[in-house]
Design a protein around this nucleic acid. Structure first.
Lengths: 209, 209, 209, 209
DNA sequence: GATGAATGAGAATTCATTCAT
DNA sequence: GATGAATGAATTCTCATTCAT
């Protein structure tokens, strides 16, 4: 799976192309949902999307770039939903804002948590995706602090790094290995508590249970 | 915790065999350290370990089992180190115990955080490994609660799930993308704070910075 | 010398068509100049010529025929230049005529020796092109002998075969691998000497140096 | 057809490997003899050689390198035969030596002139092969001059370049397009004449016929 | 006529695995 | 037991060509 520089073959400004790419992404998602990541190959993707393999390769220079674009799109989508959430929480108390964000993280798009996990397995080494994810998290952290009125410079890098990641990591783990937790109020509660602890704003002493 | 898994071809009671397997694991680790996971193949592993490919296949029935055993060994090793840490912290304050555990998580064996990450990429879908990891985390959580004198039944499943995973996830993220954080006292501090918050024992109101 | 070959789809009597074909040839030449022959494909040719791939296929039934026509055009052009040279040398001494022909061979159109070589690599097996080239050389040999007043029947087939080919081969080799030789007077001199030797008219005993 | 640096995958010091490579070369030659060069693919080569495709790729990193090695072997073989010829002609008159060399060029190995031609079509752009061929010709020229007692420094570069190439080019052309010429005494005669003319040693005035 | 998205056969290459020595 | 040459299914990717718009 060689790695080219140019990520896409044709700029999908045309709606035609945009639709085809979406079809390919959707096909990929369905396959990831159904089978192990290394069974997902370009032939199967094209086939399921209802295109010939050649069409796939006229939209993406190679397999890696298709997966990369798909991952980047996921990141962008999450950030967009985050942005909406922040906007809707303007001028609210920090704990309320955090709770909204935790809920956002807990609500997988179309139940596609498994797809996302497998996508990570396929794209995990891709530096572009890595960078995009971490920059997105950093941007979202910044937006959040701004929203709740904290100057980022008043907070250590370590803590800024942790605020969201201490929520996102466990959510992913739960989604994969204990999905029922996602629906429990006390799970949401504890995630909020973690973030607030890092903001120096503990809730009332947490009940042990 | 029995040592044998039936994906191993021979019971490695003989030291010869044990040594050979360790050599193969070490070779795999070195390759993972050097190259992308999908460049790591059985021929290269055998080659670097100084064995023929045939020998590799007399110790493991297939590639997946080699990687699986290796991952399981990592899990067992971590748990063993955890056990030592707990033993050494007997009858200490919870925050002290937690701090020791955080330090354990921050100190990978031989700086092999990258190796572990890539191993996950290769083995990530293996149900045996998944199960072993989560069972280990659950066992360690139990041991910890026992050590600090909390009855596990007094704590919600959600919280038990989170206590360690809210530390482990961010540590891995930092190891991969902001390794310098691992050495910062305030990073350790905040990780401890996260766990304590979940135990309902906040430190003194956290300074924002 | 009729201009039409039945591998062309339309008789390019219309200037439009003629121009389009020339554009396609020119694009092909530019690509051959820039890249390796097997990187030159029909899509790139159409693209560089500023046409759609469909247009290319309305002028040529397939890739081979485009390249064939292009090669045949080269052959015709060379023969036309040869004809001019011969005409301009009417009633001159044989050594003078030969020198003019050698100069012609040394002076490729637009410095496109490399293009010609790569075209040969792409079209080399085409029997039509092979035949056209050799017939052209035979015709030119005949014209030359006529011009200098030698009856072709007075000369062996072997020698007629050699007269021009002993010049053309080395010139191509030099163009590709020692282009600086092309400009040296002694190179031209020796090529003339070779041809004259075959005509049984050696120059004064050649200086060794 | 990507191009690696390393030309061979395993050093064929072992006789086993040497034999396998020879089989692959022989299979390639047979295919080139039978079909057009671009129909010759690695699958067919392996198949005809009686190996699996994987075996081919354990001896050569890619198709290009197989063809390259084969071409280089041809060059080495020709040079070896040249060397024998020179040795056998020690202390003979220049015209005798040249005649032997011309005969060598006229005697294709196993009637494989066509194979060689097609090999050139496949490998023609390969810089390694190009360089090897030209260096070989230069070495042979040097050996020849030494043998007939001419100091290379007494001869212009242009002429040294031409001495053999003015023979080799036409021979190849004849082999491909007028094979019957190869057997004619007057063809041999004229080739000798060409070389001698370049050495400043004309034969008796050439008979026109 | 022109366009260019779509096609799909076919080619190169990899690598887990086997088995004769 | 060890070896490593050989296997071949599977995968990625290309590009000449078609045809609906």
């Amino acid at each position: 799976m060689p790695d080219r520089i140019d990520s896409m073959r044709k700029t999908p400004i045309q709606n035609r192309g945009r639709q085809t790419m979406d079809d390919l992404f959707e096909a990929t998602a369905q396959l990831l949902d159904k089978m192990s990541p290394d069974e997902v190959n370009t032939n199967r993707i094209a086939d399921r999307a209802g295109f010939s393999i050649g069409t796939l390769y006229s939209y993406f220079p190679n397999k890696a770039s298709l997966l990369r674009e798909m991952a980047l799109r996921e990141v962008r989508r999450f950030e967009a939903r985050f942005e909406e959430t922040i906007e809707a929480s303007r001028a609210q108390q920090p704990d309320h804002v955090i709770r909204q964000i935790v809920r956002l993280a807990l609500t997988p798009l179309k139940g596609r948590h498994r797809v996302r996990r497998k996508l990570v397995l396929l794209v995990g080494q891709d530096p572009t995706v890595q960078a995009a994810m971490h920059q997105a998290i950093d941007r979202m952290t910044g937006r959040f602090l701004e929203c709740v009125g904290i100057d980022p410079n008043d907070m250590s890098r370590a803590r800024r790094f942790l605020i969201f990641r201490s929520v996102l990591g466990p959510v992913r783990a739960a989604a994969l290995h204990a999905p029922d937790l996602l629906a429990l109020p006390e799970f949401e509660e504890d995630l909020v508590r973690v973030s607030l602890a890092l903001l120096g704003m503990p809730l009332e002493p947490a009940p042990i249970l």
